[in-house]
Amino acid sequence: METRSSVSRSLHTNRDLEKLEPYEGKPSCTVLRGEEGSNALDLPDRPADLEQRNGRAVRKGNTVKFWGGNVVDIIIYGTEKTLDAYKFNLLRNKQLFINQINNGTIAVRRIDEDSMDENTGMNFAEFVAVLSGNMDLLNKAKLDNRIMQLEKEQAIFNKERYRAERKIAKNEQDIEVTMQAKQRMSEDWAYYNGYQGERKTLLLNLQQATAEETGRELHKIAKSYRSEAIGTVGSYIGLNLSVRSEYHYTGVFERNIFLVEGKSGLKYKCGLSGALPLGFADSAAYPQATLDKLPELIRRQQEKIDQLANEIPILKQIVSRRWNKTAELDALKQECKELQQKIDNSLKELEQQPVVAAIAA
């Protein structure tokens, strides 16, 4: 529902339809279902109270949409150069502090107050400017708001640039690491293909065992081994076969995983999880099945390198971009500085004027 906020002295006639509960027991704040808006003859002590009071006129179910063009007037009464300005200033400072707490930016000195409603509402700073009688304050409040918006936009732009720079550095580092891993896998694959000896799994305590006996022994190790340290259990074509226990973060044992260590020093899991196959003969052949997957692993490494490399040109375009509103921001800051000097000069003139005291007889 659209709302309009204004400072007005005109009286407002409520359409006496369904009456709602008074707000904090104040009849002046009572809102009637179907009314054109709400009248606020006083100011609450909390910013949320003011927003909630306005929300009573725009709440769901207001029948003004049937005859009032779905527009609700929020009328707040105030007198220039009175304590109303002081009260609005208190509300403004309270809202700033609340925003800083909610946004986690308590160290930030200046926060965008936003508007009191969705479309055309005035924020607290604008109310303070109007009630002070000095329109330069209102112009400065609008300038400060525009400068703040541009500074936020500039901060987001710079953040994207810094993020792109960090991503470029990380991609280059990941490419180097991945290329090294690919090179080491290629060396292990070359060794595996060039090996001329017998391709048989040899356990430390069963050098002359059959494949069935070797697999059965590996399953016994899988059930009994308990250590996070890597333990050697045998060899395959001159490569170490090892086992290592994995534990849950609570300290409960989960499983043992079996590894084949290549000539390059890389360790390859048995299958995807490191667990042995169910069959004994398949378990004895797990080193060969693991090394047969090296071409696929090498291909994946190359795909990762290509993906990382393709991202770098796009990231460099982001880094090379320049924010095109720098001149506008500098001009607004200069205008705001000149306006602040004008306001300061007007305040000095007021201070230098003689004070005439009226004494009642």
Rank of each mutant, 00 (worst) to 15 (best):
D117L: 11
G61W: 12
Q307G: 07
A284W: 13
A327S: 11
F258D: 10
G215D: 11
D117M: 04
S346T: 08
N93P: 01
T210M: 06
I175G: 07
M148W: 10
Q352F: 14
Q340W: 02
S227A: 14
G133T: 02
D84M: 07
D188R: 00
F253K: 09
K81P: 00
T120N: 12
Q208Y: 07
E118D: 15
E311C: 02
K170Q: 08
D112I: 00
Q95H: 13
K167H: 09
T210N: 15
T250G: 10
Q301G: 03
R92E: 10
P47T: 15
Q334T: 15
A357P: 00
S8R: 04
Y162F: 07
V260T: 09
R244I: 14
I318W: 10
A57W: 14
K263T: 02
N70W: 10
L218Q: 06
A331F: 11
L329H: 08
L332Y: 06
A275V: 02
L206P: 05
P313W: 15
S273M: 06
P313H: 15
V252N: 14
Q302W: 07
P47A: 15
I312K: 13
N310R: 10
E187Q: 02
K26G: 01
K140G: 02
A125R: 04
A222H: 04
T63Q: 08
G234V: 09
N54K: 13
Q207Y: 08
P277H: 09
L278F: 09
I298P: 01
Q288P: 01
N134M: 06
Q307Y: 07
Y77D: 02
S224Y: 06
I75Q: 01
G271Q: 04
S227K: 11
G262H: 01
L218N: 04
R15S: 06
I168S: 05
S320V: 05
Q301S: 08
I312W: 13
A289I: 06
K60G: 03
E213D: 12
L50A: 10
L206K: 11
N99Q: 15
Q173R: 11
V355E: 10
N39A: 05
V177Y: 07
G25M: 10
A57N: 10
K140M: 07
K333S: 06
S224T: 08
L206V: 04
S224C: 00
K152W: 05
K167A: 14
Q95A: 12
D144N: 14
S273P: 00
R255K: 15
C29D: 13
G271L: 07
S235K: 12
F66K: 00
L297P: 01
Y247W: 12
M179L: 08
A360P: 07
F66A: 04
K170E: 14
L291R: 01
D42T: 03
S227L: 09
K333H: 07
A181E: 06
Q302H: 05
G194F: 03
W67N: 02
E35K: 00
Q340H: 08
I314Y: 13
F66L: 04
S5G: 09
I147K: 02
